Amino acid sequence: MTEESAQTLERHFRQTLVPAFRAAGFVGSRRNFRKIRPGWAIALNIQGGALGRVFAINIGIHPLGLPDTMEQMVDPKKIMHWQCQFSSRLGPGCSDFWFSHRSSEATISSAVARATAMFADVGEPFIRRWAGENSPLLTVSPDEFSRDELDFEGLADTKIHRALLLARLRFLHDDFEAAAEFARQGLNLPSAIFNYRVARNLEQVLERAIAQLNSGV
């Protein structure tokens, strides 16, 4: 993509897409934006393709009180989408999707308009569903999880990772019995043998949850 086309794309982001982010309550600049809701941090990122002529919108959802993907506690006002424990990409069904365009201003304008409309029609409902008071991440039961009844829509990449995050979430909300059960399920997955760090974190959650249950708290 030429420098002129790149500048045109950035201008259309500023004029069309970024105002839609701000209208939805996000703050930030250039290509990174954030919003904090009770219990959650949400991060948006506009990602360009390596060869140009495409872009994507990454959505990160992070439960406040949990460590980030690097196992560090992060300031929610500064969090980036790649640090969020749950992440997806804006698209039909919030699947892996890229908006394509050519070098002309007309195709760039059309692509940014499509992305803006999809953010309103798909992205905002997706965020409200997963980063809200009644998020499935807070309501799914261990039995439902074991039967794969919840479609995570791409959030978290493996079942063992999801088990760890759900165990930590339940512990954070003082549901120690569910926290222990999610941890047990994760440790019983065949992939636990190959994911030492995740397995160790699951063991720690299980130990802490059992300690809380035994203490009568």
Rank of each mutant, 00 (worst) to 15 (best):
I127Q: 08
A115W: 10
M80G: 07
S100A: 14
W98T: 07
D121R: 15
H81K: 12
R89G: 02
A115N: 13
Q85N: 15
G91A: 08
G123D: 08
A117V: 01
Q83F: 01
F126V: 05
R128E: 13
P92C: 03
P76V: 07
W130Y: 12
W130T: 07
M118E: 05
D121K: 15
S95D: 07
S87R: 15
H101Y: 15
A131W: 00
I127Y: 07
F86H: 05
P125D: 11
G123Q: 10
P92T: 10
T116L: 10
W98F: 07
F86V: 00
E124Y: 03
W82C: 07
P92I: 09
L90T: 13
A117C: 02
A117H: 09
S95M: 09
P125H: 13
M80W: 10
A115P: 13
E124G: 00
K77N: 09
H101V: 05
E124T: 11
V122W: 05
R128V: 04
E124I: 15
S110G: 02
G91K: 04
M80D: 10
W98I: 03
F97V: 02
S103Y: 04
S95C: 08
I127E: 01
G91P: 00
A113F: 02
W130Q: 00
P76Q: 09
D75P: 10
P76H: 04
S88F: 07
A113H: 04
A113I: 00
A115D: 09
M80L: 08
G123K: 09
R128K: 12
W98G: 01
M80P: 00
H81M: 12
D96K: 14
W130F: 15
E133K: 13
